[in-house]
Each structure stands twice: as C-alpha cells, then as structure tokens.
Nucleic acid binder design. Structure first.
Lengths: 363, 363
DNA sequence: TTGTAAGCGTTATCAA
DNA sequence: TTGATAACGCTTACAA
C-alpha cells in the first residue's frame, strides 16, 4: 500500500517501449512483435499491473457500468423475491464483460426521474434497465431524451419502439385459473396489483379472459397494491361478499400469503373452503401451511437475458432475442376442489405449460 | 443528442477564460473574480454543462462510488428484508454526496474474494461495506491488504481494529426470551443461524444467557441455516423431542415463519401449545396467522450510518459514532402463556427496551 | 513493426 | 486574481 499502483507508463519504462506498445500488447491487439509482447506482458506481471478502469473509462468515453433504479420502499422491496433473482441474473452476464452494476434505490417516482437524469448527466452508466413498467410510463421517453440506452423489462414487444426483454406473465395466471376451473371452481376472484402497473393490469386481464374462455363469468376483482396489508384488506372484502368466492387468484405471493392468513384468521379452511394461488413462487411458498400454489418464472434467466441485451445495445448491436421459458404453475396444497362443487364437469383441455406438482414436503 | 456534451473546455472557450478559472468558478473556490465567476456560471448554464464524473474520477484519483458485495443465493436474498432496508439507508447518505453504490451479488465465498479483488484492482470503488460477518472472517484482512477502506457491519467494536457500525442484536433476543419467561415458559428452545456467522452465534449466546439469567436451564438448540427449509426441519426435530419446548426463539423471521407453518401442519396450536418468536420484523410478520412476535431493528438507519462512516473513512477522517437504537421486541399473537403453565411466578424485571405491543390488526 | 503524440474532462500547480 | 500548463491512466490515430 505504501507504493502506488503501477501504470502502463511504468510498464513501458521498465520494458523500454512506448505506452502505445504496452496498450496493444495488454489488449492482445496486433501491432507489436511477438517477443516484444511477451516481454511487456512479463514486465506487467512482475510489476503487478492491473488496468485502471478510470483511465480506460475516460479514454473510451464509456462508464463500463450499467444502472438499475428501483423505486420502492424497503417494505415492498424486502419481501419481493423478484429483484434478488433479477440482479443475480444481471451479474452473471455483466461480470463476463467486466461491467458493473450501479444500484439506486429511491422512494418515489420524483426522485426516480432525478436519479436517471443524474446517471445520464454525470456519465456514470452506459445504459439502464427499466423495471416495474407503468401504463403510460414516462421513463422510456425520458431516457430516450437523455440518450441513455435502455432495456425495458416486462413490456410486450408491441408496446413501443423500445428494446425490451419480455416474459409474458399471463400464462402463469391462465394456468392458475384453469387449474382452479379443473378442480371445479366456478366463482373465482382476483386480487390485482395497481392498475398503474403493466403487470398489474396484465395479470388481471389474464384472469378475466381465462375465466371467460372457460365459459364462466369472472368473479369479483379487487385492485390492491401488492402489499401484505393490501392483500389482507382485499381478502376481507371478498369474504364479506354475499357470495364469497371459492377461490382467489392473487397477483403476487405477498398478497396471497397475507390473504391466506387473513382467511385462516376468520376461520376459513384452506383449501377446503377457499383455494388460493399466488404469483412469484417465493422461497417461502413451499413452507407455508398450507403450501402455496403459485406461478414460477425464471427470473434469474430473465435478468441475464436483459443484461446481455443491454450490453449489445451499448455496443450498438441489435442484440439477439433470447428465448425465455413461460411461467409455470407450481401446484401445492393451497388449492383443492371447492366444498360446494359446481355442476359443470372439470375441464380437460388446458393451454400453456403443464402445472408442476411440487414434490417438496416437510420431512 | 446529435451534439456532444459540453466540457469545461467549451465553457472556457465561450467565456473567454482558461479551464482553470472555469474549474474554480464551478466548484465555488476562491481565485476568480466575482464578475468573471458570474459570466462563467452563466455560460456553463447556457451550454447545459454538467460535470463529467469520469473526468473528475481520473483527476482526483477517486471512483466516487462505494461497493457492496453480497454472497447469497437468490433464495436467501429474496426473502431477507435486511438488504432492502440496508441499501435504502445507504442510498440516502450516498446521494447527498453524489456517490453511487456498486452492487455485486455473487453465489459463493470464492467469487466474493474475487469480486473484492477486482473492485480494488480496477479502482472502481473508494471503499466497501462488509456484511454477513463470519467468525474468523478472512475478508477484513484481504481488504486491508488491498488497501480498500472498509466499514464492517455488525461486528462489536472489540473484535478488531476495523471500523465498524454496530447494532447489537442481543437485546432483541434477550427481550424475546424475557417476554416468554414472563409468560410462564420454562422450556424455551432456539433455532440458530449457522455457527459460521457472527450473528448466528451472537443470537444463540444471547438466548442461552438470557435463559440462564432468568434462573432457567436452556432448552434444546438446533443450529440451522437461516432458510425456510432449515427452519422447518429444525422445528420438526424439536417437536419430536421427548419433552418438546413450549416456546421456540428463531434467529430470523424466515425460519420462524417456516417453523410456525410446520408446527401448525403437525396440528400444534400456536400460540396455545407453542409460542414462537422471530427476528427481523419482516413486512409479512404482522400479516401471518397468528401474527409473529419478532425483534425489529432500524436497518435503514444502520445503512445510513454505515454509509456516513464509510464516506468519512474515504475522506481520511475518523468518522463520528452514530447512536443507533437497539432492537425492540414487537409483541404480536404468536406468543402466549404455555398451556401447562410452569410453577415459577412470572418475572417482572426486564432489561433492554420495553416490548412494543403491536397495534396493527386486520380490519 | 514500432514509437510518438493527441485526445478524454477534470483538478492542481505555478508563473505572470 | 488570473491563465497557461501539466498531470491523471488509458486508447488510438498517425508517423517513422
């Protein structure tokens, strides 16, 4: 620590060559003789030289980092399994290229915009991921204006000119509804995420059309906020209805877990009197009582694909489409035939991936 | 976007002064006349100039960013409320200073070391946070060798020469045990985190000594791994004992939730036959059935304090100690007197913060 | 094939 | 108080 880190100038001096030669040699580019190259590499190794990203970043006019801005409170972020997996996936792709991830966690949309502006203005990142897409989201336009390469997460390709990496969450909801219909449920409710979010409305639409497709009428739907409190409140409202549903499809696991607890607290037997499905396959889902039937998405793969895409975009390439698996339904113990079975025969035909019967059991 | 961003060279040229003058003017330093300064600022504003962090970073030999390396799988990271809050806290401090957070999520200790080496070698960060401290952790020494300023999270000051920001988690566990003892429990078990981690052994020690202090003998203790599966397994083992505990203190909420579900699945009434406490106060805790009694820590404040400390360290200052509140016990419905009440009278005296009776209820 | 020199955008030094 | 000028560490176009 006493002595400063060696630079290519040091290497050049010791090796008796120019800085340019050193740069070429270290980057494996042509333009330097074989034995000169070896000598340079040997000197660099002896001196313990490592490239300075600061110098390189300035020189190539790149930050060699990408950004992820998350506008969430600790409460909603801390129990959402999405970002942990997503970031893990991102990292696998970035580390291969020596890129790093700058993370900003902000509380509201206001500081979110501010955050993007700063990221762009200071040149800290070469591109960003856009998550938690909203209906009529202003951010793609903002980032366009800022000239910051952007990969949008979870917006179906038709929705705009932006580069997006998409996993359709609808098959997960559809599979849940079909699973419930096959069990004999006829009054299936939905607890939706905010209408402000794309994944909120998308899952709601999937629920409604899956039920319609089964020849049934959609049950009550309550728009909530993806939080535990919201899931609990919505569940109470549904159970207070004159004709409460026999099954509830929740838009995420957190609301489903809170909803399930609420129902149990009211003396409702699950799945005997009420079937419940979630979305996310939280690491907790399999260990609840009863274990939660829920839709699982390959979020790590999603993150990896998004990162590859963003890096390609930064390089000015188009970026190849990566096939990502659709969500699959993991059937556990929170779903069962309703106690007052409907009259219609269970449907046999189903679309989308076949449900998985989860094998994990308590020992 | 068509034209490049203006640099101070542009500003200097337009304002008809030198680059140095511009730098002084923009940084509010003395050495430039009042009206010259105003003219420079006006030009900078007109041109839409913003400082380039890449140029500045190279010039001041600083990255203007700090790093957080997390060695966890998505499964354990996604349901742990700690990091979401901690990062939120970090950001509040960093953003004031224009610093950014580089996040690395890696899977194992091997790539964790690699990660730190790269961060240091490439000069990407000016300092790092060290979390999830292990007993005989090798990382402080590594970072010392790398010359990277480090703030250790959750290591009591006596444990080494390193700068640390500490919240003692023991009062949380102690309060839980005392709460249970006051309720009349005499056979209190513990499901501990891995002995490899400091917070694993610390919480276990707190449990043991709190029980001893109450004049009781510690019940069975099972060392687990902070995961849902681990919590479930440990609970089964405890309930299979010839004399199963009437209360279990879990080292974190995730294991407590899985354990509670496991017990319920075996027909055990909670809190009637078994009381349960967690640690973390997960956003889910209040919405379970029964709601979970657990210890709450001000993790956001912890993150903020750690960031202030690290920035001070980077600046070569000592960094002031920031008083952080001890964990408090949030008493909810998962704890109650045991059904076979012990003979001893409930203890009255308690140390540490008084338990909070949580008011949140389902509407 | 090699070496030289000019950027990249700041900050800092040092004459004037 | 100014204003050139030299770092900072790297890449790269260009000349030898």
């Amino acid at each position: 620590m006493g002595t400063k880190r060696p630079t290519i100038t040091d290497v050049a001096r010791v090796a008796g060559v120019s800085k340019g030669a050193v740069s070429f040699a270290l980057n494996g580019k042509p333009g330097v003789g074989a034995q000169t190259r070896e000598r340079i590499l040997a000197v660099a190794h002896d001196l313990g030289w490592t490239p300075s990203l600061r110098g390189r970043a300035l020189s190539v006019s790149r930050a060699l980092a990408v950004g992820l801005v998350i506008a969430r409170t600790p409460e909603t972020l801390g129990v959402d399994p999405f970002f942990a997996s997503f970031i893990t996936g991102i990292e696998t792709a970035l580390s291969e290229r020596g890129y790093a991830l700058m993370l900003h966690v902000v509380s509201d949309a206001q500081s979110e915009h501010e955050s993007y502006r700063r990221l762009a203005a200071t040149g800290r990142v070469d591109g960003v991921f856009l998550t938690d897409m909203r209906v009529d989201d202003l951010r793609p336009q903002l980032l366009d204006d800022l000239g910051l390469p952007t990969v949008v997460i979870g917006l179906s390709p038709g929705h705009g000119p932006w580069s997006s990496v998409y996993i359709d969450d609808q098959p997960g909801i559809t599979a849940a509804v079909e699973h419930l219909v096959a069990l004999g449920h006829r009054n299936i409710s939905h607890v939706a995420g905010p209408a402000e979010f794309v994944h909120g409305v998308s899952r709601r639409a999937a629920w409604a059309s899956a039920i319609t497709d089964a020849g049934l009428t959609p049950g009550a739907c309550i728009t909530s906020d993806f939080s535990a409190q919201g899931g609990a409140d919505a569940t109470n409202q549904l159970l207070d209805l004159p004709e409460p549903p026999t099954a509830i499809v929740y838009a995420n696991d957190l609301m489903a877990i809170a909803g399930m607890s609420t129902a149990i607290g009211r003396g409702v037997d699950i799945p005997g009197q009420l079937s419940i499905t979630g979305f996310d396959d939280s690491p907790l889902a399999a260990y609840l009582q009863p274990a939660l039937t829920t839709a699982r998405t390959d979020v790590v793969g999603w993150g990896r694909a998004a990162a590859y895409r963003l890096l390609a975009l930064v390089d000015g390439e188009k970026g190849c489409e990566i096939d990502l698996p659709s969500p699959v339904l993991v059937v556990r113990a929170s779903t069962a035939p309703p106690c007052h079975q409907g009259t219609g025969a269970p449907l046999k035909d189903r679309r989308g991936p076949a449900p998985i019967r989860d094998r994990k059991k308590f020992r």
